[in-house]
């Protein structure tokens, strides 16, 4: 994929050097922004590998996790920062150790609630809109998780 993206940059630089330069600058800006989050993810992954075994992952966010698993997934999604792809390595690691697909889908969906940006959303679209949308996102994250769990069971049978 890196070579394909490299070719796209070469083409952009060839046809519009200014746009190519701007794109490169924008990419560096994104990289600068996600480095602290990547470090946090690295730290969390190392902690997970050291202190948490597959059994406890399975107990908290695995097949038998129950309500606790949903709370961890939904709240974790709301509290996690940065782009989703930064969290992919850690989440796929958890999945390998027994985390349930439904909970991971719920986690990724509640990531659309960005606590620091909620005041800005209120100023653009109003309080009622923000409250209703946030509530519906949490509810639908849970519904999507349930659907994925059901479908996963069907696929595995």
């Amino acid at each position: 994929m890196l070579s394909v993206v490299g070719c796209m940059y070469l083409l952009t630089f060839y046809f519009n050097p200014q746009a190519g330069q701007d794109a490169l600058l924008a990419a560096f800006k994104i990289l600068k922004m996600i480095i602290p989050i990547l470090l946090v993810v690295f730290f969390l992954m190392a902690l997970l590998h050291t202190f948490i075994d597959s059994k406890s992952i399975s107990r908290h966010i695995g097949e038998q996790s129950g309500v606790r698993g949903w709370v961890i997934a939904l709240v974790g999604g709301i509290l996690s920062h940065g782009p989703a792809y930064v969290w992919y390595p850690m989440i796929s690691d958890l999945r390998k150790h027994g985390a349930r697909d439904g909970l991971l889908v719920a986690f990724f969906y509640t990531r659309s609630i960005k606590l620091p940006w909620l005041p800005l959303m209120v100023s653009y679209f109003g309080l009622a809109f923000t409250v209703v949308l946030t509530g519906l996102v949490i509810l639908s994250a849970w519904i999507q998780g349930m659907i994925v769990d059901k479908l996963t069971r069907v696929f595995e049978e």
């Binding site: 890196l2 993206v5 490299g6 796209m8 952009t12 794109a23 924008a26 990419a27 994104i30």
Partner: peptide, 14 residues
């Protein structure tokens, strides 16, 4: 990950 970041920069500009 670097590809995704580079692609994001490209999209953001274009």
């Amino acid at each position: 990950l670097l590809s995704v970041i580079a692609l994001a920069g490209l999209f953001e500009t274009l």
